[in-house]
Nucleic acid binder design. Structure first.
Lengths: 211, 211, 211, 211
DNA sequence: TATGAATGAGTTTTCATTCAT
DNA sequence: GATGAATGAAAACTCATTCAT
């Protein structure tokens, strides 16, 4: 899959035939990220993918479908990353959440444009994106929430509303990824995303942990 | 100004001439919010404002400019609201931030569509919105940051990086306004934005306050 | 109406604004006739009408609708011509049918392209034309049929199936108009449509076999 | 040849190699009939013929050529049918024409789609079809005309213009085939094509007016 | 000043045709 | 020969913007 992280064609110099779909998706991520759904043209995506305009329509029914599939595959890759990496060694709630945060930020760093499209939201036709967006958020919230519930039950955390805490947690993650996503040049003195993340988590856990 | 909060008087039957600009801006907020920048048409905005299509171009150079001015006036109204309401009685850092949060959420509740456009971001052409977005955020961060710095100095807060804490604070505000902005029907059992906000602030301050 | 037969704009040199629709319809008749529905381009129709491409879409929802409206107005004009001219003085069945034939051929001569599109059929997307086509034929058949029924009742005609005879009559009309419609140059020696028509009617009315 | 009327043997399981051309032509008849020239796609024809898209181009230079050859072969088959069946026993002019009519209608019934494409006309690109159309008509007219000329000479028929009478005859044939071609469901009470044909011929041969 | 009819640049999308396998 | 993936020319259609009234 396009966002699996491994490199692409290895064998031949001539690009492998079945790459096409991948190449188009990759180009789509770039162009949609740079221009947004509406300013992106199918033609540019095709050109960047190194294929003819018509070829795009061999693989995707239309521009909207291309966007959706790109989006969906991105989300799948993200969820996959979470699933495979999170479900290793258990640990305390705090440890799990910390791990989650790092996986998340790792994904963002690796697939910057894609992540921006997925997490920053609101770039495709709004009506359908809004719903998708909600759904994905709900999924993430559900996961985090369960962890926090456990933490509360175990006495590790103060007795807070797990859903609210979960949303707070994700909100803080969003804060830490924002500079990346907004393509801010990391200014010399400023902290990196990861440092910022640490501090955010520090505040969060300090607020959550029972003393 | 369109977002001043007062109702619209339409005493004379014939609409007051200088209303036109206001009416167009108001219609623009609605339509841009509902459809997004690209799906919105100048024609619909004009129709909703009750003016001719050409008239829009009497007051705004073009669609983009209309969006920008709408945006800018919204931001100004927001900053104005903050300025006038925040700078009354002082109080502890926590009190000031709490007050800020309530002013903010109050503005969001009152000017829902507008607020969504301003805070949710990403609905206009990205290239220029991204920059604007950053700027506004920076302004807000600067204000909050100073308050937190004071809190830290005064020993009210733990010694945290004021900028990070400020961003965390704004991130949590964003979380609490998200349901409004995403137009989620407040489900029966679920907490209102304001209740959620209280809990978020509780976690935040608990994390921040020195014990 | 476009096919009413009278000339157009009379007053000013600058083409009257409301002509536009007429001009487009007229151009549509020409182009659709020359090229058929599919080979005709909206652009060419616009150009021939002396308007911009977009203007066509101000008056007609799309190419198909343009075709349909053109078609419908043509049919209406035809039926109108029949109605107003046929319903004068009565006469024998033969006289009425003869009059009908002349009105018909008169319409064809006058609005050649349009008539070709209407009567020759089968030039638009088939699925909807086929139905329309049938309907119009049915209307015409119904009129002729009643006349023939009378003729049979009065003993003027042999006892034939009126519907079949009606269709035969229309079939012969079609034959006589075919050369016009196929744009055959009337070759020097050959008979004109009207002469041919007379002979066809002669055969039809008097029969072929000598007794 | 595809329209020879014999059934299609498909003995070997693997389709006989040289069938391909036949299969494509047969599929072309179906699709062109159902959709018309422009709405038909080469891909659908290929699929229905059970061959690859590229294969069509092995046998036919292009879509237009495919249509033309299909058309031409259909016409040839028709003329062949006329030639072989008409030129048996002679008989009176009326007998010959009657025989002709039955052969014609028989062909139409047997090769409905094909006949519709040939006789109903106007489905391919008009410019070339118009000419073809004329040519075929001329051929048919020439044949009929000669028969009628004989009939007139022999005193069997009234002294009419043989060409006009020939066209009238063909016009009536067209009328009788129209319901088939327009795919009208023969409604319960209504006469079949053949019955209608008999009545048309009756009118044609015997005349309408009682003497 | 206000208007909306007119416009065409710019996009999406289709599909006949090619050609490497 | 047979195939179907790849292609781009061509066409429909939209809509921001202009400008005559």
């Amino acid at each position: 899959m396009a966002w699996s992280g491994r490199g692409d064609r290895k064998d031949v110099g001539i690009v492998r035939k079945k790459d096409k779909r991948e190449r188009i998706l990759k180009a789509a991520v770039d162009v949609f990220f740079e221009k947004g759904f509406y300013e992106a043209t199918v033609e540019e995506i095709a050109t960047r993918a190194g294929v003819g305009k018509g070829t795009v329509y061999e693989y995707f029914a239309n521009k909207e479908q291309l966007f959706k599939e790109m989006f969906q595959e991105g989300v799948d890759a993200y969820l996959q990353a979470i699933r495979t990496q999170l479900l290793g060694e258990p640990g305390s709630a705090q440890e799990i959440l910390t791990r989650f945060a790092h996986i998340h930020i790792g994904f963002v760093e690796k697939h910057l444009s894609l992540a921006a499209l997925i997490f920053e939201g609101q770039r495709g036709p709004l009506y359908w994106l809004r719903d998708w967006w909600r759904q994905i958020k709900e999924k993430k919230v559900a996961v985090i929430r369960r962890v926090i519930e456990n933490g509360v039950t175990q006495g590790e955390f103060r007795p807070v509303d797990p859903r609210v805490a979960a949303e707070a947690f994700l909100g803080l993650l969003a804060v830490s990824q924002l500079p990346l996503v907004l393509q801010e040049r990391i200014k010399p003195g400023s902290a990196s995303s990861r440092e910022t993340l640490e501090q955010l988590l520090d505040i969060f856990f300090n607020g959550l942990l029972s003393k």
